[in-house]
Amino acid sequence: MNSDRERVTKEITSGLNHLSMRQLETVASMVKSLNIPVQFIPGSSADIVDEAFAEEMSNLLSLHHSNHEAPLNKKPFEYAMKRCLITQGHNEADLNPAPGESAYDVFGNGERWSLKTEAAKGLSATQIKIEKFSEARWVREATTADLCAAEVRQRLPRHMDGYDRILILRAETRPDRFVYTLEEVPKKVLLDCFTSATPEMFTKKNRGGKPGISFGSDFPHPTNGDKVFRMLLDSSVEKVRLWYQTKYCINHGSWVVLKPDSDDLPR
């Protein structure tokens, strides 16, 4: 282990000799960020995030915030997920090479992962907002509640055939830190709900005294009966949006990343 550390340290220091002053400042910012401990808080489930995953995600979040003042978004999350899976020993992990042909984002550990992100200064403690659950050009033609129910029953389970699990990385921005939480939306619950959609569930809500333009629906939990999520078939942007209750998610842990001083960020 000491020999490996010496080798890597020598490789880093020898490489610094050829960097410009601006490049050295960037490296210094990264080193300083990596020296600030990231707190990991284990979740209710540990089947995804083990010690190796948690440490790798901590490092990647530190590196991200050494150069960025905004939270990690979807594309970097995909890369981070791949890196975390490889760190766990799943060397076959990779990004989807043809995302237009299949709905998953990352493959690894024998599973296809659909990844989402949510970021805000004040995230809801009770529900997760998934702005784009899926593209849905068909919502413009779903002009009645009957058509909405039929399309949801047919199209959304087919869409979900393209992946095995759904993960959402939530990033809450606080004055002095970022709090990232990894939540999983159980696929089976969604499938049970989608396949049981009925016309009576779909209505258009008035907004500010004006009639709504898109159909929405509250879906009851398949076994408990209370609301598990709200769906909006957003015809203005042709996508399906969900507001999923956090109490029905699987929590895989949280990372608390302290903000670097703004003076330390490269300009």
Rank of each mutant, 00 (worst) to 15 (best):
S3M: 04
S3R: 04
D4M: 08
D4Q: 02
R5E: 15
V8P: 01
K10Y: 13
T13P: 00
S14R: 05
H18V: 15
R22H: 04
L24I: 14
L24Y: 07
E25V: 03
E25S: 00
V27L: 10
S29M: 07
V31M: 10
P37F: 12
P37R: 01
Q39F: 06
F40Y: 15
P42A: 08
S44T: 07
S45V: 06
A46F: 06
D47W: 13
I48A: 01
D50E: 13
F53W: 15
F53C: 15
F53I: 09
E55M: 08
E56M: 14
M57W: 15
H64G: 10
H65K: 01
H68M: 14
E69A: 12
A70F: 14
K75M: 11
F77L: 14
Y79N: 03
A80I: 08
M81N: 06
K82G: 14
R83K: 12
L85M: 14
I86H: 11
T87R: 15
A93N: 08
A93L: 12
L95E: 12
P99D: 12
S102R: 06
Y104D: 01
D105P: 10
V106P: 04
V106K: 01
F107N: 02
N109C: 07
R112M: 11
W113F: 13
S114T: 01
L115A: 00
L115G: 00
L115S: 02
K116W: 12
A119M: 07
K121T: 15
S124D: 14
T126S: 11
Q127M: 09
I128S: 02
K129C: 07
F133D: 03
R137F: 08
R137V: 13
R137Q: 11
R137D: 09
E141W: 05
T143F: 06
T144N: 00
A145M: 04
C148F: 11
C148M: 14
A149R: 01
A150T: 11
A150S: 14
A150L: 13
V152N: 03
R158K: 13
R158D: 14
H159P: 05
R165C: 03
I166Q: 03
R174C: 10
R174S: 05
P175D: 00
D176Y: 10
D176V: 04
F178K: 00
V185L: 12
K187E: 07
L190C: 03
F194V: 04
T195W: 05
S196E: 10
S196M: 10
P199Q: 00
E200S: 06
K204Y: 10
K204F: 12
G212D: 01
F215R: 02
S217E: 05
S217T: 07
S217Q: 09
P220G: 02
T223S: 13
T223V: 13
N224P: 00
G225P: 10
G225A: 12
D226V: 13
D226P: 06
F229C: 05
R230A: 09
R230K: 14
M231I: 08
L233E: 04
S235W: 07
V237M: 13
E238K: 05
Y244D: 02
Y244K: 03
T246P: 03
T246N: 07
T246Y: 07
N251I: 08
G253Y: 10
W255I: 09
V256F: 06
V256S: 06
V256Y: 08
P260Y: 11
R267H: 13
